[in-house]
Nucleic acid binder design. Structure first.
Length: 534
RNA sequence: GCCCCCGUAGCUCAGCUGGAUAGAGCAAGUCACUUCUAAUGACUAGGUCGCAGGUUCGAAUCCUGUCGGGGGUGCCA
């Protein structure tokens, strides 16, 4: 990649100027403003102190050296601002990018090897199987699934997992609520209400075990609703199956052996405060039952059988959970850097300008299914992935629905539709496309053409950042930028018109094909479809 | 009380591992279809980056304090 070549050249220049080891903060990056060139480096600013020189003076020396020993494609160098060295490149560097996109294609372009095959276990959604998944849970579904896709393209082996809490008090309450509804009796105290309880109770056979049947019904509903959003899991892990196999006693043995377990007030505690938790946690209640924490610890140990590195994606309402699980894993001699918790902020839904309060037990919720039915899977998924999970998200249902034509996802999909229409129209007019080796890509010099290529050139950097930062929204933004560049190109650079030079037309065909590849990759990472016509 | 997240344009949000003149979409205004889909493009307007200090050659970005919003703080899960 050009960026690496430039970095090597900068490092070489620095060593020739007496800076032996390149300081860690030195980077080659794309300037925020195009006027500042194609690439720039802060090398002079960062190295100035160590070199005992003034940044601008060092920058000038750097620019002079690099002008003498010019890296490939570099046309001009200049020093600017406090001491940035800016590189201006010939368009040929972008023609190389185009050739690379076309050679590597949808399967491989932008692929990088950050992970080296490291197995990452991603757990997300994991909503209790006591009812439909609400629209808030859809955010974790879209996020976790896209993060897995991004990780896979960055050389990791992600494994997507849904933990099913199919035993315990909540499931019993849920079963009792179903049977009560079926028999026309009042909902038990702390039970579940809502239209879905009545509907499901009506479906339930007379001889069914309400708890088991209800869990099955919930899971089938969750799987189907998530699949509508294009979210799937590799493993659905049953807490009940794990506990039935004796996981609680087994993990208690390990915890006891760790030396961090003690008895107090008739209960058995884990000294999680030794690992930064703000209070110790109960493992076995004074009535002899295990708390939820004990099987959860067992489950996390089990996940290490399917991953070298664990990621839990939790809503902000569960953020207090992270320190105790981290502490428990460390007490067992694991966890540490291999246990990662991502806290996502919650989703708020607006309808008619009013916030829709969501509570599963009160039966007052907007299901994922409702959201998908109302606005469509692509709109919903793209909306979820448009912003950072660190930010609370407000989804205005009316806006997503009634202003659908203004929705960003259509902007991107429309670009893809235009791409395909060019092919369709070319066929209609009998305009043949020539093979790549007989086409001169260097004819692509229009600013609009170069801008498309610049966007394409950024994919692997965007992917690396999105993966390391666990931030799929950077991919959403990239795909919008690519679509924007393409729309601009489409507007200003005709292809099929009679007055277009045949050689230029052929080069443009390949630029369109590269755009198709870029859009396909980006939309696939987001789990959004790429329609060929709209 | 303590802990976590957020506060950037009228609205929804990027930017936050310190860098050059703080960006995008929507909404508002102007312009461009005899042309490969105008679900598009070009342009205008819109900002004390909540507030106050501090560190730095340089702060939306880091630190401290403070105000506002959300979430958490069970021998519930």
């Amino acid at each position: 990649m050009i960026k690496d070549r430039l970095f090597e050249a900068v490092a070489d220049a620095l060593s020739n100027l007496g800076v032996d080891s390149v300081p860690s903060g030195v980077v080659v990056e794309r300037p925020a403003r195009r006027e500042h060139g194609d690439w720039s480096t802060n090398a002079a600013l960062v190295s100035a102190k160590a070199a005992g020189r003034n940044p601008r003076e060092l920058g000038q020396a750097l620019a002079d050296y690099l002008t003498e020993n010019r890296p490939p494609h570099v046309e001009a160098l200049e020093i600017a601002g406090p001491g940035f060295v800016n590189f201006r490149l010939a368009p040929t560097w972008l023609h190389d990018v185009l050739a690379q996109v076309l050679a590597e294609g949808e399967a491989d372009y932008g692929r990088i090897n950050l992970g080296d095959g490291l197995k990452i276990n991603l757990e997300f959604v994991s909503a209790n199987p006591t009812g439909p998944i609400h629209a808030g849970g859809g955010r974790w579904g879209a996020y976790g699934d896209s993060l897995a896709r991004i990780m896979a393209r960055c050389g990791y082996q992600p494994h997507k997992e849904f933990y099913v809490n199919d035993r315990g008090r909540q499931t019993r309450l849920f079963g009792a609520s179903l049977i009560a509804a079926k028999n026309g009796e009042p909902t038990p105290e702390d039970g579940y209400r809502g239209a879905y309880i009545d509907e499901w109770a009506a479906e339930m056979p007379d001889d069914a075990d309400p708890v088991a049947w209800g869990i099955e019904r919930s899971l089938a509903d969750a799987e189907e609703a998530l699949a509508q959003l294009n979210v799937t899991f590799d493993t659905w892990s049953s807490e009940k199956a794990m506990v039935d196999a004796g996981a609680e006693a087994a993990v208690m043995d390990k915890l006891s052996a760790s030396g961090y377990v003690y008895e107090a007030d008739g209960a058995t505690w884990l000294r999680t405060t030794d690992f930064g938790d703000d209070k110790d946690r109960v493992l076995v209640k004074s009535d002899g039952d295990y708390t939820y924490l004990t099987p959860d610890i067992a489950y996390h140990l089990d996940k290490y059988n399917r991953g070298d590195h664990l990621v839990d994606i939790l809503g902000a309402d569960h953020h207090g959970y992270a320190p105790r699980m981290r502490a428990a894993l460390e007490a067992l001699g694991t966890g540490g850097d291999t246990y990662e918790v991502i806290i996502g902020q919650n989703v708020k839904l607006l309808r008619g300008g009013e916030e829709v309060k969501m509570s599963k037990r009160a039966g007052d919720l907007v299901e994922i299914r409702d959201l998908v039915d109302e606005v469509g899977a692509d709109v919903a998924r793209f909306a979820y992935l448009l912003q950072s999970v660190d930010s609370p998200q407000t989804l205005d249902l009316d806006l997503l629905k009634t202003e659908a034509s203004e929705n960003p996802v259509y902007y991107v999909q429309y670009a893809n539709a235009r791409v395909h229409n060019i092919g369709v129209e070319a066929d209609k007019r009998g305009i043949a496309r020539q093979s790549l080796d007989s086409v001169d890509l260097s004819l692509l010099v229009h600013e609009r053409e170069l801008e498309v290529l610049r966007q394409l050139s950024a994919l692997s950097e965007v992917l690396e950042f999105a993966c390391n930062e666990r931030a799929p929204h950077h991919v959403s933004n990239w795909v919008r930028e690519l679509a924007r560049a393409f729309h601009g190109f489409y507007h200003d650079c005709p292809i099929l018109r009679d007055d277009v030079d045949e050689q230029v037309r052929q080069a443009r065909f390949w630029l369109v094909e590269a755009t198709r590849i870029g859009l396909a990759i980006g939309l696939d990472l987001l789990g959004v479809s790429a329609p060929e016509s709209m």
